[in-house]
Amino acid sequence: MILMILDKINISLEELIDSALSLYIGDKNEIPKVREKLKDIMVKEINNPNVYLLILAAYLLDKEIKEEFKDDPNYIYADEVIGLAIANDIAGTKGIFNFRFYDKHKPGVIGRLDREGYIFLDDAIAGFIAGCMSKALY
């Protein structure tokens, strides 16, 4: 169901994978292997009930508050908490560490969501990508 919701806002599984791999710093010859492993992990983790519910919550929160908060005010950190919780659930401390990397650089879909005013969903997706990438590489 989450992939169907993301599809409504033009986010595909392939775009999530591309966004994750855009910050890959390992051996470029390994990318096809990492891509396949990452895809398997993403498909599995998108069905993890906690991950699923946190991403859904982020999506619904953004729908509710989009007009109230047109930018991402510094005093709101609940969005970061959602992203960190997702990354932690998928890959533990490695996922949390990697979340900061993806949240800072905002590659691909994460940056697009941020520019489109998704305060919560950009961090949820950053946490999802960071956790899955951490699990794929370690």
Rank of each mutant, 00 (worst) to 15 (best):
residue 14 E to Q: 14
residue 14 E to F: 10
residue 15 E to K: 15
residue 16 L to P: 11
residue 17 I to D: 02
residue 18 D to G: 07
residue 18 D to T: 12
residue 18 D to K: 15
residue 19 S to T: 15
residue 19 S to C: 14
residue 20 A to D: 03
residue 20 A to M: 02
residue 21 L to S: 12
residue 22 S to N: 14
residue 22 S to L: 13
residue 22 S to M: 13
residue 23 L to T: 15
residue 23 L to W: 13
residue 24 Y to W: 11
residue 24 Y to C: 11
residue 24 Y to A: 08
residue 25 I to M: 12
residue 25 I to S: 14
residue 25 I to T: 13
residue 25 I to H: 13
residue 26 G to K: 05
residue 26 G to R: 04
residue 26 G to W: 06
residue 26 G to F: 06
residue 27 D to L: 05
residue 27 D to W: 08
residue 28 K to M: 05
residue 28 K to S: 08
residue 28 K to A: 11
residue 28 K to V: 11
residue 29 N to G: 09
residue 30 E to P: 01
residue 30 E to C: 05
residue 30 E to K: 14
residue 30 E to R: 12
residue 31 I to L: 12
residue 31 I to Y: 09
residue 32 P to M: 04
residue 33 K to Y: 10
residue 33 K to D: 03
residue 34 V to E: 06
residue 34 V to R: 02
residue 35 R to E: 00
residue 36 E to M: 03
residue 36 E to G: 00
residue 36 E to S: 09
residue 36 E to A: 10
residue 36 E to L: 07
residue 37 K to G: 01
residue 37 K to Q: 01
residue 37 K to V: 02
residue 37 K to M: 02
residue 38 L to Y: 01
residue 39 K to H: 01
residue 39 K to T: 08
residue 40 D to V: 04
residue 40 D to R: 08
residue 42 M to A: 07
residue 43 V to K: 12
residue 43 V to E: 15
residue 44 K to P: 00
residue 44 K to N: 08
residue 45 E to A: 06
residue 45 E to S: 04
residue 45 E to Y: 03
residue 45 E to T: 04
residue 46 I to P: 03
residue 46 I to S: 03
residue 47 N to G: 09
residue 47 N to Q: 13
residue 47 N to V: 05
residue 47 N to E: 15
